[in-house]
Amino acid sequence: MGNTFGKLFKITTFGESHGKALGAILEGCPAGLELDEEKIRLEMQRRKPGQSKITTQRKEEDEIEILSGVFEGKTTGTPIGIVIRNADQKSKDYTHIADKFRPSHADFTYFEKYGIRDYRGGGRSSARETAARVAGGAIAKQFLATQGITVQAYVSQVGELTLQKNYQELSLDLAEDNIVRCPDPEMADQMISLIDSVRLDRDTIGGVVSCVIKNTPAGLGEPVFDRLHAELGKAMLSINAVKGFEYGSGFEGVKMRGSLHNDAIVKEGDKVKTLTNHSGGIQGGISNGEDIYFRVAFKPVATIMQDQESINEAGEAVTVSGKGRHDPCVVPRAVPIVEAMAALVIADYLLLSKTNKLAQL
């Protein structure tokens, strides 16, 4: 249960961190889409481990193998099968916790639910599962590009270091110019130094990824339970280590009065727009044509290179020692994951919108 996301544009992921492979089955992608495999590989490179000194040193090239759904470079409309083979597992790094529960990991909850768990890197609960999401999301991004829709995320906070500039003041393309993926070079340097110092302290730290979706047409979303922002929230909260989601003015909006928070509606030529965008491009759960923007909070990575108190499967008190290769801060590699999940949501609602319009004829 719970391995499939989406209604029409659907992704199902499979595989474990230390298994033979991970993969995705993508359903609902329209036929005839010219698929650029190199762009999928680029997205995988952005997420892969071992890409800098502030990420885990596990070495995985994360090469994709497309098994089905593509013929002569174009999607056929049938399920697209993708496999990503694991190559650099070091399962022996986890034998010391074979019967112990790591604090703030899914070890205990998985054991309680299933009565069995794959302790090697967390098995299915590992963030390595997101490699499959990025592969599927890369295809969704290519579909959205045909509609002029773009999805860009960036690191806006690490620990207490917060980028105060609005996304409209930034050149978001600069995020790929540094290893922390912050579009402000000065703040990026500070973030990198902080993450590196935390790493040397054998500890971890959290952060925030911000995301902007541009050129989304008005009218995407469903009433009540399937609101667009609710689905975006579900998508983001399904990502490992995510602790919070806010869109538009978010929690800061509670400090404003309605007279200042309301987005005045005007018409410029044939286009209806708002003078401000505190709504974050979504009103009543439906897109209004403005930029959709949101923030995703990631906790500090649970595995730290320090001794921690815990219990084992017999309920006995034990000490858990951190070993293996882990990120001191997850947000630099989380950027493409956030983009992938956002793209999957928008692609799904775009198809739902077209279905609704056909039903009205």
Rank of each mutant, 00 (worst) to 15 (best):
Thr12His: 08
Phe298Ser: 05
Leu228Asn: 07
Gln89Arg: 13
Ile40Leu: 12
Ser310Thr: 11
Glu129Ala: 12
Tyr349Asp: 08
Cys182Trp: 03
Tyr119Asp: 00
Arg202Ala: 15
Gln51Gly: 05
Arg124Pro: 02
Ile82Ser: 03
Glu65Asn: 13
Lys59Trp: 04
Asp62Ala: 00
Pro336Leu: 01
Phe251Pro: 06
Gly81Pro: 07
Glu34Gln: 15
Arg47Pro: 04
Ala21Asn: 02
Gly121Asp: 02
Ile64Cys: 06
Leu237Phe: 12
Ser321His: 14
Leu361Pro: 04
Phe111His: 07
Phe9Pro: 02
Val224Ile: 14
Val83Glu: 02
Ala342Thr: 11
Glu246Pro: 11
Ala334Phe: 10
Thr4Ile: 15
Ala140Gly: 06
Thr76Lys: 04
Gly207Arg: 08
Thr216Trp: 02
Gln308Phe: 11
Ala230Trp: 01
Asn3Phe: 12
Val296Trp: 02
Glu37Ile: 14
Ser17Gln: 07
Asp36Asn: 15
Arg41Pro: 01
Lys271Cys: 05
Thr13Asp: 04
Arg227Met: 11
Phe111Val: 06
Glu316Asp: 15
Leu200Gly: 08
Met256Asn: 12
Glu268Asn: 14
Arg117Gly: 04
Leu35Tyr: 02
Glu27Arg: 12
Lys113Pro: 08
Ala145Thr: 09
Glu176Lys: 12
Met187Ala: 10
Lys113Tyr: 03
Asn240Val: 11
Ile286Phe: 04
Gly284Lys: 07
Leu352Val: 13
Ala241Lys: 06
Leu358Pro: 01
Thr76Gln: 07
Ile40Cys: 09
Gln190Leu: 13
Ser321Thr: 15
Gly221Trp: 04
Gly285Ile: 03
Glu313Met: 15
Asn288Gly: 09
Val335Ala: 06
Gly258Met: 11
Leu8Tyr: 03
Leu194Cys: 02
Asp327Gly: 00
His261Gln: 15
Val331Gln: 05
Gly19Cys: 12
Ala106Asn: 01
Arg85Pro: 08
Glu61Phe: 07
Ile337Gln: 01
Gly248Thr: 12
Ser193Asn: 15
Gln89Asp: 14
Cys29Pro: 03
Arg117Met: 06
Asp173Pro: 01
Val70Gly: 07
Lys165Tyr: 05
Glu316Trp: 04
Ile239Cys: 00
Phe111Ile: 10
